[in-house]
């Protein structure tokens, strides 16, 4: 009986959280047009979420590509088709690894920064001060950061994929001796527009999800040091789980 009660309570809390997040999402979307009228705030947030994440994205992209090159070569040479390394790696990066790993890295770098920044603004009364100055914090603080994250994610994902393919090339072609002509020609012949669109769609969806989670957790954080810390942790955990669930759902729909 106790177990059933606990389950019901958990279910109620879950539904309530999803409802609160949905209402918050609608509020943010409602303020997006007004936020876009002051583009300098949005540009600053694209810089914060995007440009400041470049180093980690490029470094990880290079190493993920290099590992993909090693593993892909090892697998493909068993079937005598190592020339297909470019195709296999490009499809893997464009359709799955690029958007997913970028989203996970985004949640860890930009998402935590967003959540802690907004949470600290809450804890130090900066959001209340804005409300008292008749300025809606959703419009002035949340919406520009949300838009910045949504725009930055596909760009970061594209950079991750490009650097990743370079990593595959570095290992597969320059170290393991795959023919460069076959590497590029097979990749160009096999990767279709639909594959690229799938990657773009996924990174856009992950951008909305991760940015929304980050700004929501920050905005609703308890105004204490512990509350801000908890919001930061929840941002990473929820974003990561949500990214993987959404990835499965999108892949299932688009295959």
């Amino acid at each position: 009986m106790r177990l059933v009660d606990d389950l019901l309570t958990s279910l109620k809390n879950f539904v309530s959280s999803v409802g609160a997040l949905s209402i918050f999402f609608v509020r943010v979307l409602g303020q997006v047009p007004a936020a876009l009228l002051k583009p300098r705030y949005v540009i600053a947030q694209i810089h914060n979420a995007g440009a400041l994440s470049l180093v980690i994205i490029m470094t990880c992209g290079l190493f993920v590509g290099a590992v993909l090159g090693l593993q892909g070569y090892d697998l493909l040479q068993r079937f005598g088709s190592e020339d297909s390394l470019g195709t296999a790696a490009a499809l893997g990066l464009i359709k799955e690894l690029g958007p997913v790993i970028t989203a996970l890295l985004f949640a860890g770098r930009a998402g935590t920064a967003l959540a802690s920044e907004i949470g600290l603004m809450r804890a130090t009364d900066q959001l209340s001060a804005m409300e008292m100055m008749a300025v809606d914090p959703i419009r002035r603080v949340v919406a520009p950061r949300f838009i910045g994250g949504v725009i930055a994610m596909p760009l970061l994902s594209a950079i991750f994929i490009s650097i990743g393919i370079y990593g595959v090339h570095l290992v597969g072609v320059q170290q393991l001796g795959v023919d460069p002509g076959s590497f590029w020609s097979q990749m160009i012949a096999s990767v279709e527009t639909g594959d690229i669109n799938e990657g773009i769609l996924k990174s856009c969806v992950f951008g909305v999800a991760c940015s929304l989670i980050a700004v929501h957790e920050g905005y609703t954080a308890q105004p204490t040091a512990e509350g801000v810390g908890r919001a930061t942790t929840r941002t990473v955990v929820i974003s990561a789980v949500l990214t993987l669930i959404l990835d499965f759902m999108l892949t299932a729909v688009m295959l």
């Binding site: 603004m121 130090t124 900066q126 209340s128 409300e131 100055m133 300025v135």
Partner: peptide, 26 residues
Amino acid sequence: RRRMGMLFQNGALLTDIDVFENVAFP
């Protein structure tokens, strides 16, 4: 609220902009 001003206990200045921009904010 546009006709009210409030001084918070801790000032509640926006920390990412300078003094001039804080006063210019409203």
